[in-house]
Every structure is written in C-alpha cells, then in structure tokens.
C-alpha cells in the first residue's frame, strides 16, 4: 500500500466530514465554507491520484481546479449578497441594472 493510497483515503474521509457540514450547516455561509474546503481538498486529491497512477499530467487539472474553486466561491458569495450577478461589487454603480 503506497503512501499515495493512504493519503487519498485520508483526504476522502475529510471530504466526507466537510460534506456532512455542508448538509447540516445552519446557515448558507456554513455551506459555502464547507464547499470551499471541499474544493481545496479536491485539488489535493487530483494531484495525489495523478501521482498514484503515475501520470503527473493530472497536475494541470489541479491548477485549473484551484483557480475555478476560487472564482466559484466568489461568484456564489456575490450572488448571495446581491441576488444577481449583473451588478458590480460597488453599490454606487449598481443603479444601471
């Protein structure tokens, strides 16, 4: 049993715990936080699984996932804050929409 398999299992268990928080979470922000944590762990999981199969090319996917996770979190937060994605973050310029 290689170290990669061990760490993949550990990461999966941790993802399951975060998923439980995402399901239970009393507020929407708890769910976003759990989602963000799951995204970070997925980046690690992709890299570890890529090494486990001897295909380090998976790292490109991990890079893309790291960036997508960041943008996705911000997009969901913005949606919660304003109820739409059309407006800017600044309140003064929001009158246009």
């Amino acid at each position: 049993m290689s170290i990669f398999a061990v760490s993949a299992i550990a990461i999966l268990v941790s993802v399951a715990l975060a998923l439980a928080r995402a399901i239970m979470g009393p507020t929407a922000y708890d769910r976003i936080l759990a989602l963000n944590a799951i995204g970070t762990k997925t980046v690690m999981l992709i890299a570890v699984v890529g090494f486990m199969n001897g295909r380090p090319d998976f790292l490109d996917l991990a890079i893309v996932y790291a960036l997508m996770n960041f943008i996705g979190t911000l997009a969901v937060l913005k949606y919660f804050k304003f109820g739409t994605l059309r407006r800017g973050f600044s309140r003064s310029s929001g009158g246009k929409s």
């Binding site: 941790s14 759990a34 944590a37």
Partner: peptide, 8 residues
C-alpha cells in the same frame, strides 16, 4: 487534513 474535517 483529517483534523480540518473534524474541526469543521
């Protein structure tokens, strides 16, 4: 990583 999940 496990502690993180537990803490969450």
């Amino acid at each position: 990583v496990l502690i993180t999940g537990y803490g969450l």
